[in-house]
Amino acid sequence: MAKIIVVTSGKGGVGKTTSAAAIATGLALRGNKTVVIDFDVGLRNLDLIMGCERRVVYDLVNVIQGEAGLKQAMIRDKRSENLHILPASQTRDKDALTLEGVEKVLMDLSEEFDYIICDSPAGIERGAQLALYFADEAVVVTNPEVSSVRDSDRILGLLSSKSRRAEQNRDPIKEHLLVTRYNPNRVDDGDMLNLEDIREILAIDLVGLIPESEAVLRASNQGVPVIHDDKSDAGQAYADTVSRLMGEDVPLRFQSVQKRGLIARMFGGGGRR
């Protein structure tokens, strides 16, 4: 049985797809058979972040509607043979996803894979609810910013009431906080919520802290999940996150301002890597 992990946030633009791509890739690099599913019907983007946009033939909606098999729709990742991508469709029909259809796809995938990562759309509408409904664990992606924190709290409400685990009175979904775009300099200046504040307000366990990093845009430009950039701060922070998801105890990094040496400052060019 695969473990189903939803990457969700409520608010858009906080780094859900970046995180889903990095986490799925990291799990696969660690030897787990992993599939990552884009639930953002109508606005698919995971394929771009994963660098497989030109290889999309069939998608999740085709599978649910019986127009293609899972094997036809899944794209094998170029860099890791353990990793598959199931893209979302570009159709605008919001009702294309059904609860029964999603359940069938997840059950079929569950037999073959160790991890199923569900990349949720923004919002709290149907697509987001379907993405989290069957989850065993949730990664709640949050920026250190008021609207993102509030929306994350709304999502926590949904996770605890509108999921299959909640409705069947089973153990609740395991909730993990992933703070992204964290800028220790601004935290030091008192102009950004610090990690402790966010943890205290949302009251869930931290699984990772991703610093604001130039590596993230560089990675999405190239269609290579940022976790492959193992020299970058963001890449390393995602690798730590994956270790924690796999149950390892890894010390937290990138929480405070990184001091750069004089030489690095003179010749380092465009900021931290």
Partner: peptide, 8 residues
């Protein structure tokens, strides 16, 4: 940031 925390 502390204003943000209180509001939240």
């Amino acid at each position: 940031a502390s204003v943000a925390k209180e509001r939240l």
